[in-house]
Amino acid sequence: MLSWLAVCCSGVLHINAAYKGPRWQFYLFKPLTIALMMLIAVFGGEPNGYTYLILAGLLFSLFGDVFLMLPKDRFIPGLLSFLVAHIIYSVAFWQSFEGSMVWWLPSLIGAASVIVFLLLLPNLGALLIPVGIYITVIAQMAWGAGEFWMSAGTQPAAYAFGGALLFMVSDTVLAFERFKGPFKASVLLVMTTYFCAQGLITASVLSL
Rank of each mutant, 00 (worst) to 15 (best):
F148Y: 15
L128D: 01
A17F: 12
V131H: 00
I15V: 14
P22T: 13
I133L: 10
D65G: 00
F26E: 14
F176C: 07
T172M: 13
P71Q: 06
L124N: 08
L55E: 07
M141K: 07
I133C: 01
Y27F: 12
I54S: 03
T192N: 07
K180C: 10
G125Q: 05
V131G: 02
L53D: 02
L118F: 10
N48T: 00
V114K: 07
L2P: 05
L108E: 03
M1E: 12
R178L: 07
F179E: 08
L120S: 05
S96I: 05
A17E: 04
I109N: 06
A17Q: 08
L119F: 14
I34C: 11
K180T: 12
L200I: 10
I76T: 09
M150E: 08
V42N: 00
R178D: 00
G11M: 06
E177L: 03
G146W: 01
V12C: 07
T154V: 02
A17K: 06
P156L: 11
A197Q: 07
L208A: 11
V137C: 04
L118I: 14
F97P: 03
L127D: 01
W94S: 12
F161S: 11
T51L: 02
I109S: 05
H14L: 08
S81K: 04
G132E: 08
R23A: 13
Q140L: 15
M1Q: 10
A142C: 06
F161L: 14
A18K: 11
S113F: 06
S113M: 13
L120N: 00
I135M: 04
A145W: 02
A175G: 07
H86Q: 15
G49I: 00
R74H: 13
G49Q: 12
A203H: 00
Y134R: 05
P130K: 02
A152R: 09
E147I: 12
G21L: 09
A18Q: 11
S107V: 15
L32I: 04
F43V: 11
W24N: 09
K184A: 14
A41P: 05
K30D: 13
A112Q: 03
M38N: 02
T33Y: 02
V187Q: 14
W4Q: 04
P31D: 02
T136W: 08
S61L: 08
Q95R: 15
G64N: 04
T202R: 02
F82W: 06
L119Q: 13
D73S: 13
F117N: 01
L79I: 10
G49T: 12
N16Q: 06
